[in-house]
Design a protein around this nucleic acid. Structure first.
Lengths: 118, 118
DNA sequence: ACAACCTTGACACGCCCGTGGTAAGGTTGG
DNA sequence: CCAACCTTACCACGGGCGTGTCAAGGTTGT
């Protein structure tokens, strides 16, 4: 076991509990490599990530679940596009566009969005 | 009361309950205008947003809370930056970069990130 | 003026999340 | 070979989220 720490050692130096390290792993946020026999091995990079993760949560009052959702947003382009599209539709209809053209205008906006996403 | 629907009418046509419309409003997702006496007034735009919101949730198995968090991300640039920065640090250090240059490399990456965000 | 709306605020309840603990079993090092 | 680790898989439990419902009071239309 060269440079890496076991889960309890990693827990010790990062301030998380071993239980939470496993939880964080299931959330996909910090995934240590495994030894041949399946032990989790936390290297310096993982330890740093665990410490900054705590900082991130504390400083901005967000939850692990929310960071997990942000991760989902980065990995699932389609999801990100769908969420962005929903927010974009919030932009008010400009007053100078007559109601009859509204639908077409919406559609064009949607097209543009798809173009940038692809 | 010209074009707009009251909360129960809006509930009727969107499939949400009146209770949930108030909940969604508190989450900042769909905020109807108010009449002089404080009644919520849902116009066509809000109705459409409510329907597409349901679509969004169903299609991607996400929660109102998660969409609320996405909203927070759009509105709080600093939060977005912090979350993005945390994820960026996950990118493996390319093997060809010596450890001594690692920090500088990180910094440059951070700069690039800021540049695209601004 | 009265019925039928609307408002906010509260209580309630089921479910999931974050967290701890424990049990049953494999790995490791002296 | 034994103590001290590790693994996964459960049970538990306090708190927050999604949702309903009710109470007390203001607004509106006929």
């Amino acid at each position: 076991m060269q440079d890496a720490l076991t889960i309890h050692e990693a827990a010790e130096t990062t301030g998380w509990s071993a239980r939470m390290l496993r939880y964080i792993e299931r959330a996909g946020l910090v995934e240590p490599v495994r030894s041949a026999s399946g032990y989790r091995l936390y290297g310096p990079a993982e330890l740093q990530r665990l410490r900054t993760l705590r900082e991130l949560l504390d400083r901005h009052e967000i939850s692990l679940g929310e960071v997990g959702f942000a991760l989902r947003l980065r990995r699932d382009e389609e999801l990100l596009g769908a969420v962005e599209a929903w927010f974009e539709a919030e932009a008010e209809r400009p007053a100078h566009i007559p109601a009859d053209d509204w639908l077409e205008w919406e559609q064009q906006k949607h097209m543009k969005l798809l173009a940038t996403t692809a």
